[in-house]
Design a protein around this nucleic acid. Structure first.
Lengths: 108, 108
DNA sequence: GCCTGCCGTAACGCAAGAGGTTACAATAGG
DNA sequence: CCTATTGTAACCTCTTGCGTTACGGCAGGC
């Protein structure tokens, strides 16, 4: 579960559009006003050309009565997927040799 | 579960130090070299004065054979907690009126 | 046909963030 | 005492997130 080597996760913008704006009949102009951001900013997010920031996640969570974690989670999934798809210096990092197995913390 | 109104979540740096560096007897200098980042950068993260970025999460996941999600998750939790603690313009955002209940997507 | 509203987007500017290098003082250990 | 490690300051660079303004395109209504 939760593997990153799958197909591109849906962007926050797609969720905003498909799950909220269209059902609620909200235009970009109007939603931007409600969120207190510029039309440009929301447009970029909805069209996948800008990420959902923490601040934006807070705004979205207020507007749609969701958790902010939902939005940052969607964004993180996408960021990680994209990072994993392209070359990066991190690919040169070698695993540190473990003496005994060290168990990973459970998301605490 | 997963409420954000709790006490400050532990920072990625605390996990790096307590769960990996100390058990493995890794110095900041040495780990920084292995990760391919500057000593300054790692020091700042370990001491909670800089966030774990996506790039850094990839490096940490390689070094410690964990998922990158672990590290971005820890960071996000912290970012959200901190945002929720201070004043921000997002607190002025009013909930959008829902016609019928729209169910939230399950982290897809 | 014309006006109006919504949209995408380019061109600015601005502030903040993330990273690097260098250098210095403090600390701990052999 | 000497050495390794560390935190941190100063400085530079590039990128990013956001705002404003302005423009052209595309509907719809009248």
């Amino acid at each position: 579960m939760g593997r990153i080597t799958t197909r591109r996760p849906s962007s926050p913008g797609e969720i905003i559009k498909g799950l909220y704006m269209e059902p609620l009949n909200l235009s970009i102009t109007e939603l931007a006003a409600r969120l207190g951001v510029s039309r440009k900013t929301l447009s970029a997010i909805v069209n996948g050309r800008a990420p959902v920031t923490v601040d934006m996640a807070m705004r979205l969570s207020r507007a749609f009565s969701t958790s902010p974690e939902l939005w940052v989670g969607l964004q993180s999934k996408l960021d990680l997927w994209e990072a994993s798809q392209k070359e990066g210096a991190w690919k040169n990092v070698e695993p540190v040799h473990m003496p005994e197995q060290v168990e990973a913390p459970a998301q605490a």
